[in-house]
Design a protein around this nucleic acid. Structure first.
Lengths: 250, 250
DNA sequence: ACATATATGCCGATTATTGGAACTCATCAT
DNA sequence: ATGATGAGTTCCAATAATCGGCATATATGT
């Protein structure tokens, strides 16, 4: 996949994202270069640049690289997110407890949504989002659609346009389908999905109107499609909204 | 301070480090440009590049930037560090409990050491390292010296050479003083410091010989200089070493 | 409402990056 | 233990990018 990496700093971010999905063993140079669509020499250069501050470090296997301690260290400094998690964790756990399903706290990160907190439910699909730290393109899944409702329309559309090439992997052949979901979510105040993203999987999400702007987030659940109807979705949305409401603004 | 930023990806890392020390309110563009020693236009360019993936996001104040959710998301994927913390946390807490002082788990990140775990003691100096995520140049403080003992001599020396300009801020006028500490630490198997880095502050550190190479780490404590003698340092080193030993290799 | 500082666009020159191929090294099989 | 294979690493000149500065419009905080 040729990614339009204009700046070199973007490439650095791209590398970090890819290594984040790699695990302890990391990735080899050529695997990274292939994923980025760049030459090995260019990839390596960025790699050593990131190594200088410890954002990347050599893995156990020869010539493999993985995320370094600098990332971990910085995580405790992302106060905007840590505060968000601390405040809304009660909602995430409560929603999971009531619905008996896995619940997630998703926040916007560029063109994607990232899962920053979750609570495993008793049943069914676990980690549709790939667990904490998992990235999903905005427009894929109800959680991300709810986040989009918090954004200005031109911004939301530009994001959808950017992500359109990736929709095919998720039964989103045409973008119109996603924009319809977005419109519905704006009207209802929540977003739901019955087997439209993943077969047999459904979801419900309620956006979090952040007290002090800028961070767009949502609380969502994953639930078997067989258990979900529009009426049930409304009920669940009410549960989520109530749980969010209990989390007082700092 | 003019930093020799050869690559552009380095600049990205530099920005992340600076923003990590900024807090929720983030930093203004000009403050960042000044800290990096670059033009505002170049700094802004890198900033928007990092924003595309959510590594950086606009803060509440207009024109201010802070760390974004992507950093938080990646932290759970730095398996090398999370495993290290999970394994040696018992040692950190035990050392703090026995010595009644703050204890730290430090790992190498490029030319610095980063505090990845800590346990506040009852007394005295808290957070000499700046808390979890805090960076300290390798060579400053016993924890970092112990880490240096895990490295090859040429590498350790090159790191010290790189950090030499920063030693002045910490009563390290000449590098010889640091190399002497390093030699002593190699000989003793641990490192200690009595009021040499910060007045009235002392510290003891024991390196962690990582089962599967690559990651260099150490467990250290901070203690009032008045309570520390070489004999006491040896005792404390024994405590730390014992605690580390209890943390069985995975 | 005024002043400050940002966001954004542009443009020429310098600079670093790019991509390829040769070299070196670690790993794997024998 | 040794050789063969497949990596990763280094070097190079040409290319393409970035850089830095400036001007304008905008948003903010006093």
């Amino acid at each position: 996949m040729a990614s339009e990496s204009s700046s070199n700093a973007e490439r650095a971010g791209e590398i970090l994202v890819h290594l984040g999905n790699a695990g302890v063993d990391g990735m080899s140079l050529q695997a990274l270069a292939l994923a980025l669509g760049d030459a090995k020499s260019a990839t390596r250069r960025a790699l050593v640049a990131l190594s200088k501050r410890g954002f990347v470090e050599p893995a156990a296997r020869y010539g493999h690289y993985r995320l370094g301690p600098a990332i971990f260290g910085l995580a405790n400094r992302t106060t905007s997110v840590t505060e968000l998690v601390r405040r809304y964790r009660p909602a995430v756990t409560e929603v999971a407890a009531i619905t008996q399903q896995s619940s997630y706290l998703m926040v916007r990160a560029g063109f994607d949504a990232i899962c920053v907190d979750m609570h495993e439910g008793t049943a069914f699909v676990q980690t549709l989002t790939g667990g904490i730290g998992g990235r999903v393109p905005l427009g894929i899944g109800p959680g991300t659609v709810s986040i989009l409702t918090l954004l200005d329309d031109p911004l939301a559309l530009s994001i959808l346009d950017h992500n359109a090439p990736r929709f095919g992997q998720y039964n989103r052949a045409d973008m119109a389908k996603v924009t319809r979901e977005l419109d519905r979510a704006r009207a209802l105040g929540f977003s739901y999905d019955i087997g439209e993203t993943y077969p047999d999987a459904g979801g419900v999400a309620v956006p979090i109107v952040s007290s002090r702007g800028n961070t767009a987030a949502a609380v969502s659940i994953a639930i078997p499609a067989s258990l979900l109807t529009q009426k049930r979705a409304e009920e669940i949305a009410g549960v989520i909204r109530a749980a969010i409401g209990k989390c007082a603004p700092a």
